[in-house]
Design a protein around this nucleic acid. Structure first.
Length: 599
RNA sequence: GGUCCGGUAGCUCAGUUGGAUAGAGCAGCAGCCUUCUAAGCUGCGGGUCAGGGGUUCGAAUCCCUUCCGGAUCACCA
């Protein structure tokens, strides 16, 4: 709005005054820094270069031109070196506030497009429960989906469950051998944790076996080759592939336990999917497509019948796609799944939320599809995120340092509970309201802690810091929202019409600096959302929402709203509060975080 | 070794179409609850933006290079 208006006006000015046409976007317009007077700043260096005039002179001329020509928008200006600082008229800001005061969808694009965007995320293995790394994945996937929806896309959320393979057989074998028929019902253990327990048990027995074999004089590779346990697991996988009814029955039964466990975890995180696929259904896909590549000459079949993609010209290596026995590898499967999805949805973009250890894999996937001749491979986007590390370093299952998702959420809930009760502000809450509040705060703290960091970066998860609810945290923003809502409730009791905030905006009242500053921040929300949707990064939203909350808190402390004697000014502050509360709620919603009415 | 990603305050992180004196939070110190919620606010201290070179009116940001950290380069998934 104001940015494009300024760009166009500057272009007109350059043409009229200097007879030049600056390249679109070459003249920078930005928010004016706090220490200077003004709302927006035009950087005139590039313009002055083209016009062969001093930057100050250009800034001065442009300022005069804009103020005289658009006096209803531009109030005044000042020039510091080559920076032209423009102040908008109070009318402009009042109109702006009036326009958005009751606009529930402010900043978002209401009408979704027809072509969907696919977002695949979570994609867990069914041999163990979810951990902290999955949490980052799930939160990113969910948040990016919400952001894309708000930016006007139709989003389809996909989950591809890795439900087959040798790792699943390990759990099955261990349960068969040492489980004594234990079930989630009989043991009281959540299904995914129970299966995970047997996965660990397999590993334990396997290690013991290897140790014995080594003591009998074998070296490491020999011992691994001689392991009976591993051979049994492989045999079980073969039986599974051959459709052995017993093995299949056990597989279904144990996977079902895991799904019930996962469902509980997803529900707690408030995460849903539009479609769940299973690798047991898709793992054979892709072979035909690879063979198609062989027949059209883009892929190479060698003497031993294995099939390869040669990507050396694209700075990558050669990549195997079919083994010499004709069976698929992981890549083949992903090729098949991608094609199937493309056929099913004809999406504009396919986003895969997967850790950065698979950067190479997705680079290859994209290029192999391109090589075979699928132009839509350009629209594949790997949303790659960094690992979550602990103060002691990486999470290692063998060292028992893996942070379990369920445990962590419970811990956050408990911390929210003790912290809240210690503050003693919730006496008139019902037990159910308290439960909801603790959940909201605990999960809010966790989600915010993870999403405020740039997805690409390896992040450090410090348990002590993550349970701190002060400062740059989710609960701070939730608190600010609750505080605003409280003021608005009291205002309503006092007879203010906060449900129609538009009516509160009195065009004639003067606009103080602090309110103007808040309005500038508010006006940024659509831009921030747009950028987040382009960059697929919830972090910018998280940081923006925090800044808004912090500015509001300062404002709140410095000025009074309900006790302001100037009624028009009080009304202005109330309208502003309505809008900010809504953006806080909206912004946190994009992160998958709920916000309380009171706390 | 090849490729990719990262390095900003003691710690965790913001800061991208190159802009003005690099910002928050935590930790530390000093203040503020009789007034709309103190999960808050105010103030102080804290920086060779890993090092070096280049591009230009201007570089944390772009290019080159060195150093450090991580990922990856399987007829595994």
């Amino acid at each position: 709005m104001i940015y494009s208006f300024l760009q166009n006006s500057i272009a007109d000015f350059a043409a009229a005054s200097y007879g030049i046409e600056p390249a679109p976007g070459s003249v920078q317009v930005q928010k004016t820094r706090k220490e200077f007077d003004g709302d927006f700043t035009v950087v005139t260096f590039s313009l002055s270069k083209n016009a062969r005039k001093a930057p100050e002179a250009v800034a001065e001329e442009l300022g005069k031109w804009l103020v005289s020509r658009f006096s209803e928008t531009f109030h005044q200006f000042n020039v510091v070196k080559g920076f032209l600082n423009l102040t908008l008229t109070p009318d402009y800001w009042m109109n702006f506030l009036r326009n958005i005061a009751d606009d529930v969808a402010f900043g978002t694009t209401a009408t979704p497009g027809d072509t969907p965007v696919l977002v695949e995320f979570s994609s867990p293995n069914t041999n163990k429960p979810l951990h902290l790394g999955h949490i980052r994945n799930n939160l990113l996937g969910h948040s990016v989906s919400e952001i894309l929806k708000a930016a006007g896309h139709r989003v389809v959320k996909l989950n591809l469950v890795n439900d087959r393979g040798i790792h699943i057989c390990k759990s099955m074998l261990a349960w068969q051998r040492w489980g004594n028929g234990e079930t989630p019902g009989s043991s009281g253990i959540k299904g995914d944790h129970l299966v995970g327990k047997y996965y660990v048990l397999f590993d334990k027995h396997y290690k013991e076996e290897l140790k014995k074999l080594r003591e009998s004089g074998l070296d490491e590779p020999q011992a691994e080759a001689a392991s009976v346990l591993m051979a049994d697991a492989r045999e079980m996988l073969r039986q599974w592939e051959n459709g052995n009814p017993e093995v299949r029955a056990l597989w279904s039964r144990m996977n079902q336990w895991v799904y019930e466990g996962f469902e509980a975890t997803y529900k707690r995180m408030n995460i849903t999917f539009d479609q769940i696929d299973y690798e047991s259904d898709t793992y054979l896909l892709g072979k035909n497509i690879v063979l198609e590549g062989v027949s059209n000459g883009t892929l190479e079949q060698r003497e031993d019948d294995s099939v390869w993609a040669d990507l050396r010209s694209q700075n990558l290596d050669e990549k195997l796609l079919l083994r010499s026995d004709g069976t698929s590898v992981y890549m083949t499967q992903d090729i098949g799944t991608a094609c199937k999805r493309y056929e099913q949805f004809k999406p504009s973009t396919m986003i895969y939320v997967v850790g950065n250890e698979q950067n190479y894999h997705f680079d290859v996937l994209k290029r192999v599809l391109g090589l075979i001749g699928y132009g839509w491979s350009e629209n594949i986007h790997h949303l790659s995120y960094g690992m979550v590390e602990l103060p002691q370093g990486k999470m290692k299952s063998r060292e028992g340092t893996v942070v379990d998702a369920d445990d962590l959420m419970t811990e956050m809930y408990e911390t929210a509970r003790s912290t809240t009760l210690a503050l003693g502000k919730t006496e008139n809450f019902s037990p159910q309201e308290l439960d909801e509040l603790f959940h909201m705060l605990g999960l809010g703290a966790l989600k915010y802690f993870i999403l405020k960091v740039d997805p690409r970066k390896t992040m450090l998860f410090n348990p002590e810091e993550s349970i701190d609810f002060n400062g740059h945290t989710g609960p701070f923003i939730q608190y600010t929202h609750a505080r605003i809502r409280s003021v608005l409730r009291k205002a309503a009791e006092a007879g203010w019409n906060v449900d129609h905030a538009q009516l509160l905006v009195d065009q004639t009242v003067m606009l103080p600096d602090k309110e103007r500053q808040l309005l500038r921040l508010v006006a940024d929300f659509p831009t921030v959302l747009e950028e987040a949707a382009t960059a697929l990064s919830p972090a910018s939203i998280a940081n923006y929402v925090y800044e808004l909350a912090r500015e509001y808190n300062q404002f709140y402390h410095e000025f009074s709203i309900l006790h302001e004697p100037n009624k028009s000014l009080a009304a202005l502050r109330l309208a502003l509060s309505v809008v900010i509360a809504r953006i806080l709620q909206r912004g946190m919603g994009l992160l998958g975080i709920d916000v309380p009415e009171r706390m």
